[in-house]
Design a protein around this nucleic acid. Structure first.
Lengths: 160, 160
DNA sequence: CTGATTACTTAGCACAACTAAATATATTCG
DNA sequence: CGAATATATTTAGTTGTGCTAAGTAATCAG
């Protein structure tokens, strides 16, 4: 755990400090980006669930419940509402008719993808004001981040 | 998502690509950090309000309403609940007795600060596995980020 | 002092999201 | 077959957040 490898002569724990600032930056970043989400017309839980459905292929309600960490009834209603909005379709499983599989409609996928595009667009605009060097620093930083915190895991929702 | 950035000999839109990756990284980062928040026992609006109170010094209810972008009655109730939980205290203003100032209790501050520490701690641990050069890249990146997306805004809440 | 404004509260409504408990139905296994 | 198990739904209720409308109380402007 504690690896005193701070040879840079800085203060006690450089990692701690960078983590702290990174934390703040991520919060501010997403805070700004999230404002674009309102336009989707979906609430956060629905957006999150839709994301799992879009990127996670057809999923059963049970899987969705596990992914979203909610109880079955919550998912039932959630899916019903998404279905009513034309964003997902539900089909029975061929071999096990207890199971219902949820799949995103083209409209559901589009809504999510466009939402993300809106978010990213906003950020890209800010990035154009930077120097090439600064952008490269950001690029390198994201690569590092993705490496350390996304070894394996479920696809991230468009949530926040 | 964003791909074809190479077909015209150069980067069609480097900013767009970096934005896309940054977006993904921020989502994954907060996804990880946010799991720690559940332990606070507070809901997102309360956590956010408490953060404004803790870091924004004593604030009036009106200021809090403006910061959180909600109507006065919503804040009244929010503060009442926080007060009931022993996380904040409310005092009248000396010169203007219509005004009520909200201040965090030691327990309220501690809850927030420890919550943040929990979040950051996890990340700091990952960062210790990096080289000094990589950490420096991350540090520079956060500085750039904070600069472009936090020109002069209100203090950021610890919510996400 | 009177009237308008400001700061906040109270009361009541609506709604989203969650839950536990009680089903209904389908599958699996002894 | 029949019992246990698994999947999802329905029912009924809670919690939390937000709103508006209407009220109280303090301050300010004339």
């Amino acid at each position: 755990m504690v690896v005193g490898e701070d040879r840079s002569g800085g203060h006690a724990d450089e990692a701690q400090e960078v983590a702290d600032r990174l934390h703040g930056a991520a919060i501010h970043l997403l805070r700004r980006l999230r404002t674009e989400d309102v336009e989707s017309g979906l609430t956060a839980p629905r957006l999150s669930a839709l994301s799992v459905i879009v990127f996670g292929g057809p999923v059963t309600l049970g899987e969705l419940a596990a992914a979203e960490q909610v109880r079955p009834p919550t998912v039932s209603r959630l899916v019903r509402d998404l279905e009513q909005g034309g964003l997902v379709t539900v089909e029975p499983d061929d071999t096990d008719r207890r199971i219902r599989r949820v799949r995103a409609t083209p409209r559901g996928s589009l809504l999510l993808i466009e939402g993300k595009a809106r978010r990213v667009q906003r950020l890209a605009q800010d990035l154009r004001a930077l120097t090439g060097r600064e952008r490269r620093t950001l690029r390198e930083a994201t690569a590092i981040l993705e490496r350390i915190l996304h070894p394996e895991g479920r696809p991230g929702p468009g949530g926040d």
